[in-house]
Nucleic acid binder design. Structure first.
Lengths: 232, 232
DNA sequence: TTTCTAATTTTGGTATACCATATCTCCCAA
DNA sequence: TTGGGAGATATGGTATACCAAAATTAGAAA
């Protein structure tokens, strides 16, 4: 039965335990994010609260809270009768979210040009340099994580908490899709070039240039979505 | 004791009951939004789950879910020890959120110019006309609600669900602050002028003009925030 | 065999109990 | 009078029980 699938797939990671700083539900949300992004919980899969809670060794209460959190992030969705399943967004839905993300990142870039400290800009430029130097050595996941860190640190440097929070939401929602499309190594050269443009705009604190290059960078990612779709 | 304050303030509205379509927790979230925006639950006020649940005639479970929802919207915040209180954002925090909202609305305006149907644009223009005709008759709350409807319908006309959802979040978070600053009737003339500009850009489907006027409209609102602060 | 219906099982929503910890109170010692 | 600490209380986190509704299954009738 389905219950066995869930149990066997997840139990080997050991039980979830509450951290000193994070509650069980927060830990659970984090764990679920990981399971979804790694597709151990594949898109469209049903998530019965009881079974999954039992599989992770916790009760329904924190599991429910975690599911709500993930639902808001867009990683989990509910049917008309409130049954939860792993989100399986269409390409169009991903494109819609990416469009918003592009605007958020463009705003972040503009603000960063005005607000980021020299130290923060240096750190961002260092990340860019790291990606250039390690591009041949990096695995897909390493390359991608550094890519994400590059973007996140620009957003963080705006010190705009609302922007930081909303950006994190969109990142979580789009993580899997972006990872899929970044796997194709042919894209790395273009990614690196665009990151260089972004870094240059930031170092010279050229806000309008920044908004422009940032927007076209994300638009490339949007285009890659469709390409990826056609390949599969 | 504090419990009595909460009880006496809220019980007269009758108990919360689950709607045919919405769960108790969703109803509760809606009710809490109303209580917070009307300042029956004033900024900074403590919200002990038990007392408030009891005051609304429900158990802690749906109250907790509602509080989580409101926390994500930014209407409720948690202390270091997880106690919830009504959010009391500083002017700077409001300005940060407004900055993001401005970008979202500018994006919405641009997309609407390209995507909205003629019927949707007509409906938006009608809302604009209604505000012009009724500006002298409208109470502050009526004027403001129509104002919000005008903006929301532009966002809705983009048919971009991610944008619609995120915009709704920011609207909820900023509702009270925006209402405060829109109360000053002197602002109505400028609001109407800017709405007219927005409507014109939309009718002529001039996306770049739209982005520009929308952005300056929200920037006016940001400025009003500070003014409001100085007056009190 | 197929289809419709009734019984059964599954599932999410809500209430409640219990626990650990945070917070508050009050009293004693300096 | 003040500071600190022990005891009492309040509060949030989690587990569990129960219920109504949804989903599934089984069986009977055609």
């Amino acid at each position: 039965m389905a219950k066995q699938n869930i149990l066997s797939a997840l139990m080997n990671d050991g039980p979830i335990i509450a951290n000193e700083h994070r509650s069980l539900s927060a830990e659970t949300a984090e764990k679920l994010r990981e399971l979804i992004l790694l597709e151990k919980l594949p898109p469209g899969m049903h998530i019965p609260e009881r079974d999954l809670a039992e599989a992770l060794g916790i009760s329904r209460t924190p599991m429910r809270e975690a599911l709500r959190t993930l639902a808001i992030e867009g990683l989990v969705e509910f049917t008309a009768t409130r049954r939860s399943r792993v989100a399986n967004p269409s390409i169009d839905e991903l494109r819609e979210s990416m469009t918003v993300l592009a605007t958020l990142e463009a705003l972040g870039g503009e603000l960063a040009c005005a607000i980021a400290t020299d130290r923060e800009i240096t750190a961002i430029a260092d990340l860019n340099q790291k990606m250039i130097e390690c591009t041949d050595k990096f695995s897909a996941i390493n390359f991608f994580n550094t890519d994400m860190a590059f973007h996140s640190s620009i957003i963080t440097s705006t010190h705009n908490q609302a922007l930081i929070d909303t950006h994190r939401q969109y990142n979580a929602k789009l993580w899997r899709a972006r990872f899929m499309s970044s796997k194709r190594k042919q894209g790395r050269a273009k990614t690196l070039q665009q990151h260089q443009d972004i870094t240059n705009a930031l170092v010279s604190r050229n806000a309008s240039k920044m908004a422009q290059v940032m927007r076209s960078h994300i638009e490339t990612a949007i285009d890659n979505l469709s390409i990826q779709q056609n390949e599969t």
